[in-house]
Write a protein that binds this DNA or RNA. Structure first.
Lengths: 345, 345
DNA sequence: ACGGTTTTGTAAATCGTTTTTTCGGGACGA
DNA sequence: TCGTCCCGAAAAAACGATTTACAAAACCGT
């Protein structure tokens, strides 16, 4: 419709001042006469002036943009983190640009490069693999960044994640207290540090109770894969009395496998899910779940990133938030014939 | 680390050419001597040059940015659309900036204004209400845009949505064929055009079968609200033989209400869900569902938007994609005492 | 009243790219 | 051989905001 977007010049002309003054009024970088300022604001309002952010960015070199790179935009955990970050940013005049690496390292590199070309003020990345090789590229660009979720103690960068070992511990402890001794851990992919840490937490808890390490089934990244792997496993092994899922997709995989075989929950098999979504509650037997505090994760990411953007130069922080156990109906003491009915640990 | 990002000048100097030539090599806007071009490319590679997109944007006036505004980044339907769009954009050198209006009209306005300040090449918006008042603002900015999902035949803009009436019809027809005569429709909010259209499709189908209009329960936007409203309704009314949910949240609400009361599915109550997610399948009784083709929606949005960006000036198109019915175990003929066991329509 | 300091707004430089214009040399025709 | 045309590359202008440098005016104390 309107062919020419209105520039600062138009506003200046209308208010009878110079462009520089308009800029000062809008950003408050220099004091200006209140009367003039009002005239400028008036003119800006009348024309519907919106500063061209590209021009501002070019001059100042700092965009009010935060780039977020996640492995998968269809995974509700990742999107909920994005959502939480977006909520935090919103009021502070920042914009969010997102991209998905699709779990692919090459894509991760190229998407990262593309986003960095905008010279964003900050970067949030959930890497798609453990050795986050794109790190070098970020460092070179000199952009403040926070690594979330997957990598927990990168020495050169801030990280925000949950306390994965503890998450494993609380799940394992709960099952142990119920009397379970034969636990199957449904892990997604063991090449991911956070998954390994969750396993470690489980293993340590079992060991302290004088039990052998748990059976860990690496069931893959997506739902379908997890479902078939778990199905196969159940068909070829003696059933456990409990399954402990380590991601939301493996939780779904376990549910699917159990449902397909018409295996009851919590008997003969108890199930602990990971993450906490509405669909876990909207069931005949609501799922006991290890809840990650997604909102707090988002807030922590933004708090850290904002501090860095504002010049904080303290050594890299490694924030770990605690998961909580939401106890519901999908876990119970094992049936007598299955469980070794010694009391709780 | 490296304090100064490398500019086109650095590349030009290293290759012994002028900045303009470098630009021509990179964008292919003008032919250059192959030997020179290679030297330039070499230099660019060595320095790791990445054009500053802000500067490019300032000059050309068109950013390779697509802005997406959705009502809620925690609703998997919206994020799956975002994801599908992102996938389509990725290879074409566009970036995605997202914002959530949180279902709030004021926020919708302000977020929209903020995003438009980047002068994006295109805009995708899922409005948070029917009378999409922010439309004027977009028109003024002269940015090509596509309205998705909620508004189906805005006269002045391209729209992409599903064929909501048909979605209602296929759900109703399925239930009718099974013999259901007492159907509860779990709508979210009737102020939304797409929901009203789905209801209309259901109503029309029932009417054609000589049946009275269905009971429509407006159960609200989030899961919790839907769950309590449905619970209350079930406690105070005679039970239907089937529930037809019109959004993924109301599907969850219905599941929760039924589970809480230990009401069986599909008997005494059948349930049709809306959208199709893994959690609908990973159940003892997998859910019959009306599936929206999210990937196709995303692709259609991008196709339309890309055409507009490239100058297509044809009259506004209103693309409607068909939903499909995924028949699973949650629907069955009503029990004899409940259903009027006349054959299918 | 005067010199000096502090405000207050303007003019101009600047950011890094793209694009238009200019320029120089080689090719071609007469 | 000279003039013209053409081509490829360099030079310069432009984009729109911010910011520095600067000029003018106001203000201060002695």
């Amino acid at each position: 419709m309107s062919d020419k977007p209105i520039s600062i010049r138009d506003v200046a002309e209308r208010a009878g001042v110079s462009p520089g003054t308009v800029s000062n009024v809008m950003n408050g970088s220099k004091p200006v006469n209140p009367a003039l300022a009002e005239r400028v604001r008036q003119a800006a309002r009348e024309l519907g002036y919106q500063a061209d952010r590209a021009a501002a960015l070019l001059r100042t070199g700092k965009a009010r943009i935060i780039a977020v790179l996640v492995p998968d935009l269809d995974n509700p955990f990742f999107t909920s983190v994005v959502s939480a970050v977006e909520t935090s940013l919103r009021d502070q005049g920042y914009e969010l640009i997102v991209a998905s690496s699709n779990g692919d390292e090459a894509t991760e590199h190229s998407r990262l490069a593309a986003m960095l070309a905008w010279r964003p003020a900050g970067l949030v990345v959930i890497p798609c693999s453990d050795d986050f090789s794109a790190r070098a590229r970020i460092g070179q660009a000199g952009v403040p960044y926070v690594i979330a979720d997957r990598i927990t103690r990168e020495p050169t960068a801030d990280t925000v994640s949950v306390d994965n070992e503890d998450a494993g511990r609380i799940g394992a402890r709960h099952l142990l207290e119920l009397g379970h001794r034969n636990i199957l851990v449904a892990a997604s992919v063991l090449t991911l540090g956070n998954i390994r840490e969750r396993c470690a937490g489980i293993g340590a808890t079992l060991e302290r109770a004088g039990l052998p390490p748990p059976v860990i089934l690496e069931s893959g990244g997506h739902f379908e894969l997890a479902a078939t792997r778990l199905s196969q496993w159940l068909d070829t092994n003696r059933w456990p009395t409990a399954i402990l899922a380590l991601t939301n997709f493996t939780t779904l995989g376990a549910l699917a496998a159990l449902a397909e075989r018409q295996i009851g929950i919590p008997r003969p098999i108890s199930l602990i899910g990971f993450d906490d979504y509405a669909w876990m509650r909207a069931r005949a037997t609501p799922l006991t779940a290890i809840r990650q505090p997604v909102t707090e994760i988002g807030e922590a990411i933004w708090a850290r990133l904002k501090a860095r953007i504002d010049g904080d130069a303290s050594p890299p922080a490694h924030i770990q938030l605690k998961c909580s156990l939401e106890i519901r109906a999908s876990t119970a003491a094992p049936s007598v014939e299955d469980g070794i009915s010694t009391g709780a640990a």
